[in-house]
């Protein structure tokens, strides 16, 4: 499956809750159906950020394990308003 990424975000330099806050703000800027790629750290971020994104109603497409130990989360924005 080929996924076209509309926006990239790196949250490896921040900690909770700013990790999810930054993700949420980036998603707020997108239109319905656009894709955000989020680079995040192992541990707490990879446990919590995908779950919080899902709770907001967005669609998780993929969670990729990168060679440097980080992850890339691909999220499709769902705008229900």
């Amino acid at each position: 499956m080929d996924i076209k990424i509309d926006e990239n975000l790196d949250i490896t330099d921040v900690v909770c809750p700013v990790t999810f806050v930054k993700t949420k703000v980036a998603l707020d800027e997108l239109d319905d159906g656009q894709i955000l790629a989020v680079r995040l750290n192992d541990g707490e971020p990879v446990q919590n950020v995908p779950r919080s994104v899902k709770e907001e109603g967005h669609q998780i497409l993929k969670l990729l394990h990168n060679d440097d130990g980080t992850y890339t989360l691909l999220v499709k924005k769902v705008d229900d308003e």
Binding site: V14, P17, V18, F20, V21, K22, K24, V25, D28, E29, E56
Partner: peptide, 23 residues
């Protein structure tokens, strides 16, 4: 755009569905 400091300062607002970045 929010600065990192603003994201942290207002994080408890931005986390709320009713507020978010727009609010």
């Amino acid at each position: 755009a929010f600065t990192n400091e603003q994201l942290e300062r207002y994080s408890r607002h931005i986390l709320l569905k009713e507020v978010g970045a727009k609010g």
